[in-house]
Design a protein around this nucleic acid. Structure first.
Length: 193
DNA sequence: TATACGATCACCT
DNA sequence: GGTGATCGTATAC
């Protein structure tokens, strides 16, 4: 299957879009290389009630993309050396997104190994920073819509049974830790941690 | 202008 | 399980 997700697909509340993205295939064409994999782990972030969200306080130059139409890619720089990829959710001007945390490689594994410095396959994309490195993504690719972007795409992938989705608390945050807004594939070896 | 702090990762013990 | 790397941004002065 290589059918792109439609623009209508993204028109969902964040907590519905997040699990719906599990099983979809994320593909990058950066540098003319086709690489990608099946999404196996995501986290939801909502500006209205979530203190861990980048746009909890207000709209700024950095988080502006999170207020655009759903389906845009929001990529930010973190810890001085890593990047994280998000899919904007909700409606325009809402301020929310889904963080893509891990993929199961399906295309261009050799290229991913090169970009990841020869790490073992299990560590190619089992974390948001690793995933962006493997796909060659940085902030210069932020603000493109997944449905129309030249450099990456989201495609229909595997059909996922709800019984195989695990819900837990988000990783690496200090605020709003009580929210179980992390969704991952149960017993999938490509999930982080 | 100054400073503290991350939606992380790799490497150490 | 602990910690240093490294820098853009937000918030404080």
């Amino acid at each position: 299957m290589s059918t792109p997700l439609t623009k209508a697909f993204y028109q969902k509340p964040t907590l519905e879009l997040a699990p719906a993205l599990l099983g979809c295939e994320l593909v990058s064409y950066v540098d003319g290389e086709e690489v990608g994999g099946i999404i196996v782990e995501v986290e939801a972030y909502r500006g209205d009630i979530d203190q861990a969200c980048h746009c909890y306080h207000k709209r700024t130059k950095r988080n502006d993309v999170m207020f655009w139409e759903p389906g845009y890619a929001y990529i930010y720089f973190i810890y001085g050396m890593y990047h994280c990829l998000n899919v904007v959710s909700e409606k325009r001007d809402f301020g929310a997104a889904v963080l893509i945390r891990a993929i199961e490689p399906t295309r261009g594994i050799e290229v991913m190994r090169e970009r990841r410095g020869g790490k073992r396959d299990r560590d190619l994309a089992n974390g948001p920073g690793k995933l962006c490195q493997a796909l060659g993504l940085d902030t210069s690719y932020s603000g493109q819509h997944f449905n129309t972007a030249d450099d990456f795409a989201l495609l229909k992938g595997r059909r996922i049974d709800k019984a195989n989705i695990e819900r837990s608390s988000r990783i690496g945050i200090s605020k709003s830790t009580e929210l179980d807004w992390r969704f991952s594939m149960k017993d999938n070896p490509w999930v982080s941690r």
